[in-house]
Design a protein around this nucleic acid. Structure first.
Length: 425
RNA sequence: GCGGGCGUAGCUCAGUUGGUUAGAGCACCUGAUUGUGGUUCAGGGGGUCGUGGGUUCAAUUCCCAUCGCUCGCCCCA
């Protein structure tokens, strides 16, 4: 339809899907809370610099995927393409570094100007965690285990594979980067266009390439392991041992480099092959240099982000929608009484839908359509007797109840579990 | 940014080798049932056939362009 459409790569999240989304974020937030990660909310836009400086000019995100615009004062702003930079900025601008270590959970929309496809949108949603101020590898282990726990709670951990790698510390990474650079320089004429560019800007990224011509050359490239210094090697060993200790299975993937410049040491991805071209469900790593690069003091960090849409695609269980009680007034006086009654019941915790229009039959149909488990009918007969007719829509049983005692009576007839059955997520 | 596939009712889709008023199922509305839902039956509304142009006596159908969706490349959650 050439009518009003949402902007490309954006979607309306209708009630049915919203219920599922809320369930996912609520559950993730609760589990993160058990690890003592507290929720943080940062603005969805920042000064462009915040992302430019931290993600690195060579990253695809900065070079071609950011939603950047000028506001009325001429400042360059950018819709956040990810949230780690925003959290790091909050840490610096809020002076939070006084109370390290800090553990944050977040969820919300992110924006990247990409070609939409399955599991990839221009406005998408991530939830994630950041652990700041812990340079020890135990932090990596806990953060990864939190991710595994969350995936497991949706019963989708089994659909994923945890891949991990180490990029080493700064010194190791630098040494390796040099070696890679000189190795690939020998084959410059055979490399893909992208990789030739990477050669000067960010040689490690060549290892990530999926181009036929590159893959041949990558096979014999120097291995990171040979360039790790002792500290980096011990660090990674601790992480691997830690995961084994917790019974978290993983596979080593030395090609796992990660797109963003600020990563060092541990890099990991929970991947799946059930999402078409997109494989990463939850991914992250350690970013010890980030806060400093942004102008703060040297504060280490490790964290991950998960794609809500991707989790949602894997997590197919129907989340049960709410079941209300329908209040069905017939006649003007009954409507007045019905509104009062509905509000009283809502105040005591019941979920009430009012059937607005039509004769009794129509309003009963409405009650059935919204899946009510009971109907409270008020008409002239009832008004005269100051009662209401309560009909159980599952059994068809019907009884008269006194209007002035309706809340207590209802609480008595319907147990708490029924009353709030949809409010538990 | 680059490639492939697809655009017919709110949804899922049929259809036309170019030819009167374009179909089905589901959904929606009305009635059978003026105070009793789910099932059933009868009827009804809803389409500029994505948009613009071209070819033709005639285009939803063929051609071109464009927009959108979708899948993939790249990259990422």
């Amino acid at each position: 339809m050439a009518k009003l459409q949402p902007v490309r790569g954006t979607h309306d999240i209708l009630p049915k899907e919203s219920i599922q989304r809320r369930h996912i974020t609520d559950q993730a937030r609760n589990i993160a809370a058990r690890y003592c990660f507290d929720e943080i909310n940062t603005p969805i836009f920042e000064f462009t610099e915040v992302f430019q400086r931290t993600l690195g000019d060579t990253s695809d995100i900065v070079s071609k995927e950011m939603y950047t615009f000028e506001d009325r004062s001429g400042a360059s702003l950018t819709l956040r393409p990810e949230n780690t930079a925003g959290v790091a900025r909050a840490l610096i601008s809020g002076g939070l570094s006084q109370s390290l270590p800090l553990k944050f959970f977040y969820s919300g929309p992110m924006f990247r100007y990409e070609r939409p496809q399955k599991g990839r949108l221009r406005q998408f949603h991530q939830l994630g965690v950041e652990l700041l101020g812990v340079s020890e590898p135990i932090g990596d282990v806990e953060v990864i285990s939190l991710g595994a726990q969350i995936l497991s709670s949706f019963d989708i951990l089994k659909k994923t594979t945890l891949e991990i790698n180490t990029l080493g510390d700064k010194a190791s990474r630098l040494a390796y980067s040099e070696a890679i650079k000189s190795y690939f320089s020998n084959y410059e004429s055979s490399l893909s266009k992208d990789s030739i560019l990477r050669l000067s800007k960010n040689p490690l990224r060549i290892l990530d390439s999926k181009e036929e011509c590159d893959i041949e050359i990558i096979k014999n490239a120097p291995n990171m392991n040979n360039f790790l210094n002792e500290y980096s090697r011990d660090f990674f060993k601790y992480v691997c041992d830690g995961l084994n200790n917790l019974g978290i299975t993983f596979s080593l993937n030395s090609k796992l480099v990660r797109g963003l410049d600020y990563y060092n040491h541990t890099a990991f991805e929970f991947t799946t092959n059930e999402l078409g071209a997109q494989s990463a469900v939850l991914a992250g790593g350690r970013y010890d240099g980030l806060v400093e690069a942004m102008g703060g003091s040297s504060i280490p960090g490790v964290g991950w982000a998960a794609g809500l849409e991707r989790i949602s695609l894997l997590f197919r269980d129907e989340v049960i929608a709410s079941r209300p009680i329908s209040v069905i007034p017939i006649g003007v006086t009954a409507e007045t009484e019905g509104l009062k009654l509905a509000n009283e019941l809502r105040a005591s915790g019941f979920t009430i839908d009012i059937a607005y229009r039509g004769n009794l039959s129509k309003r009963m149909k409405r009650a059935n359509k919204v899946n009510s488990y009971a109907a409270i009918i008020i008409g002239d007969d009832e008004l005269n007797k100051k009662t209401a007719t309560l009909r159980n829509l599952d059994t068809g049983e019907q009884q008269e109840i006194k209007i002035d005692k309706i809340s207590e009576t209802m609480e008595h007839i319907f147990p708490k579990t029924l009353k709030s059955q949809h409010n538990d997520s």
